[in-house]
Measured scan of single mutants.
Amino acid sequence: TEYKLVVVGAGGVGKSALTIQLIQNHFVDEYDPTIEDSYRKQVVIDGETCLLDILDTAGQEEYSAMRDQYMRTGEGFLCVFAINNTKSFEDIHQYREQIKRVKDSDDVPMVLVGNKCDLAARTVESRQAQDLARSYGIPYIETSAKTRQGVEDAFYTLVREIRQH
């Protein structure tokens, strides 16, 4: 089974770092803004072998026109913010609204991801993020692309959301 996953969120929150940590098991430290990259990885989730087709997208506003296209083809979405960047957390709402509009559905598989949880300088409390996820009816997972904490959990949870859909 193949799953088309799309990673969305503001610029600099760590979308590529999360994806590369999942696929290649290493942490990319330097920031190089993405336009669009796709990665494929075969994994076993709950005993089922599946192929993850992951689209890593641009957070930069100037590429926002490309969003409709990949939102149409994606089956599930990782909505990523950084726990030390309140603005990126506030941006999640717009991504969710755009996904709902493009998919013409209120019920699209999504996982809210709070990345950079290895950093002490948190400005978005776990509780705020949990409340937001609960209001959307989606899971919330904290990750660190640096330490790998929660990385597999985030992507695998999204696959489970798609399966249950």
Results as ranks from 00 to 15, higher is better:
Gly150Leu: 09
Gln149Thr: 09
Leu78Thr: 01
Val13Lys: 01
Arg148Cys: 09
Ala129Lys: 05
Ile99Thr: 03
Asn115Gly: 10
Leu52Glu: 00
Arg67Lys: 14
Val8Pro: 00
Tyr156Ser: 14
Gly59Glu: 03
Ile138Glu: 02
Ile99Trp: 04
Arg101Pro: 03
Gln60Trp: 15
Leu132Trp: 12
Val124Trp: 13
Ile92Gly: 03
Ile54Arg: 00
Cys79Lys: 02
Asp53Gly: 03
Ile162Asn: 03
Arg122Asp: 13
Ala154Gly: 05
Lys41His: 11
His93Glu: 15
Asp106Cys: 09
Glu61Phe: 15
Pro33Asp: 03
Asp107Tyr: 10
Pro139Gly: 05
Pro109Glu: 02
Thr34His: 00
Arg96Ile: 15
Ile138Gln: 02
Arg127Ser: 11
Ala65Thr: 12
His26Ala: 15
Thr123Lys: 15
Met66Val: 15
Ser16Thr: 07
Gln130Val: 09
Gly59Lys: 04
Ser126Glu: 10
Leu18Arg: 01
Gly137His: 03
Leu52His: 00
Ala58Ile: 03
Val6Tyr: 07
Lys100Trp: 05
Asp104Tyr: 07
Gln60Lys: 15
Glu125Gly: 10
Val7Ile: 13
Val13Leu: 07
Gln21Tyr: 08
Met71Arg: 07
Ile83Ser: 13
His93Asn: 13
Ile83Val: 14
Glu36Asp: 13
Gln98Leu: 15
Val8Ser: 02
Arg148His: 15
Arg163Met: 11
Gln69Lys: 09
Gln24His: 04
Glu90Gly: 07
Leu22Ala: 15
His93Lys: 14
Asp106Leu: 14
Glu125Thr: 11
Thr34Tyr: 00
Ile45Asp: 06
Thr123Asn: 10
Glu48Arg: 08
Ile138Arg: 03
Tyr70Ser: 09
Tyr63Leu: 08
Met66Ile: 13
Asp32Ser: 03
Ala154Met: 14
Gln128Pro: 05
Asp106Tyr: 14
Asp106Ile: 08
Met71Leu: 15
Arg40Tyr: 04
Lys103Asp: 03
Ile23Ser: 07
Glu62Met: 15
Ala10His: 05
Glu97Pro: 03
Leu55Asn: 10
Glu62Gln: 15
Thr57Asn: 03
Leu78Pro: 01
Lys100Asn: 05
Lys15Pro: 00
Ala120Asp: 11
Val111His: 02
Asn84His: 14
Gln60Thr: 15
Asn85Glu: 11
Ile35Tyr: 05
Tyr136Pro: 03
Thr86Val: 12
Ser144Tyr: 06
Asn85His: 10
Ser144Asp: 15
Val108Glu: 03
Pro109Trp: 05
Leu18Gly: 04
Arg148Asn: 12
Asp107Phe: 13
Ser16Ala: 00
Glu90Phe: 09
Asp91Ile: 12
Asp104Met: 10
Cys117Asn: 09
Glu61Asp: 14
Arg67Ala: 14
Ile35Thr: 02
Phe81Cys: 08
Asp46Pro: 04
Leu158Cys: 04
Val111Cys: 05
Ala121Ser: 11
Asn85Ala: 06
Gly11Arg: 15
Val111Asp: 01
Glu97Val: 05
Thr57Arg: 02
Cys50Ser: 07
Ala121Glu: 10
Leu18Pro: 01
Tyr39Leu: 01
Arg67Tyr: 14
Phe89Lys: 04
Glu36Gln: 02
Ala145Tyr: 00
Gly47Thr: 09
Val159Ser: 03
Asp56Trp: 00
Asp106Glu: 13
Ala129Asp: 04
Val151Pro: 09
Thr147Glu: 12
Ile92Pro: 02
Met71Trp: 15
Arg72His: 11
Thr34Glu: 00
Ser64Leu: 10
Arg134Met: 08
Val124Thr: 10
Glu90Leu: 11
Thr157Pro: 03
Ala82Leu: 02
Tyr3Leu: 10
Asp68Ser: 07
Gln21Trp: 06
Leu158Tyr: 00
Arg160Gln: 14
Phe81Trp: 06
Asp32Gln: 04
Met110Val: 05
Glu161His: 09
Leu119Asn: 15
Ile92Phe: 14
Ile35Phe: 04
Asn115Glu: 01
Gly14Asn: 00
Gly114Tyr: 02
Glu152Ile: 12
Thr49Gln: 07
Asn115Val: 12
Ala58Val: 03
Thr147Met: 08
Gln130Pro: 05
Thr123Cys: 11
Glu61Thr: 14
Asp68Cys: 05
Val43Gln: 06
Lys103Ile: 09
Gly11Trp: 12
Ala154Asp: 01
Tyr140Leu: 06
Tyr39Trp: 03
Val44Trp: 09
Lys15Cys: 03
Val44Tyr: 10
Val111Arg: 02
Ile54Ser: 03
Gln42Met: 08
Gly47Trp: 04
Lys116Ala: 15
Thr34Pro: 00
Gly137Ile: 04
Gly12Glu: 15
Leu119Thr: 15
Ile92Trp: 09
Leu119Cys: 13
Asp32Glu: 09
Asp91His: 11
Pro139Gln: 09
Glu61Leu: 15
Cys79Met: 14
Tyr63Arg: 14
Phe77Arg: 02
Cys50Asn: 06
Arg96Tyr: 14
Tyr31Asp: 02
Thr157Ser: 09
Ala10Cys: 10
Cys50His: 06
Glu125Cys: 07
His26Lys: 04
Gly59Thr: 03
Gln42Ser: 12
Ala17Gly: 13
Tyr95His: 03
Ala121Gln: 11
Ala58Asn: 13
Arg163Asp: 10
Gly9Val: 00
Leu119Ser: 15
Ala65Met: 14
Met71Val: 09
Gln98Lys: 13
Asp53Cys: 02
His26Gln: 10
Asn115His: 15
Leu5Ile: 15
Val108Ser: 04
Gln21Thr: 10
Gly9Ile: 00
Cys117Met: 08
Val151Arg: 03
Gln164Ala: 08
Lys116Val: 14
Thr34Phe: 02
Arg134Gly: 05
Gln69Leu: 07
Cys79Leu: 14
Val7Pro: 01
Ile45Pro: 04
Ala10Tyr: 05
Asp29Gln: 15
Thr34Ala: 00
Thr86Ser: 12
Ser126Gly: 08
Gln42Pro: 13
Gly76Arg: 02
Tyr63Cys: 13
Tyr63Glu: 08
Ser135Met: 07
Phe81Tyr: 11
Val159Phe: 07
Thr57Leu: 14
Val28Phe: 09
Ser16Lys: 00
Lys41Gly: 11
Thr157Asp: 06
Phe89His: 06
Leu78Ile: 12
Ile20Phe: 01
Pro109Ile: 06
Ile23Asp: 04
Leu55Thr: 11
Lys41Tyr: 11
Tyr31Thr: 02
Gly11Cys: 13
Arg101Val: 06
Ile23Gly: 15
Gly47Gln: 10
Thr86Pro: 14
Arg40Val: 08
Arg148Ser: 11
Ile92Ser: 05
Thr86Ala: 12
Arg96Phe: 14
Arg148Trp: 15
Gly59Asn: 01
Asp53Pro: 03
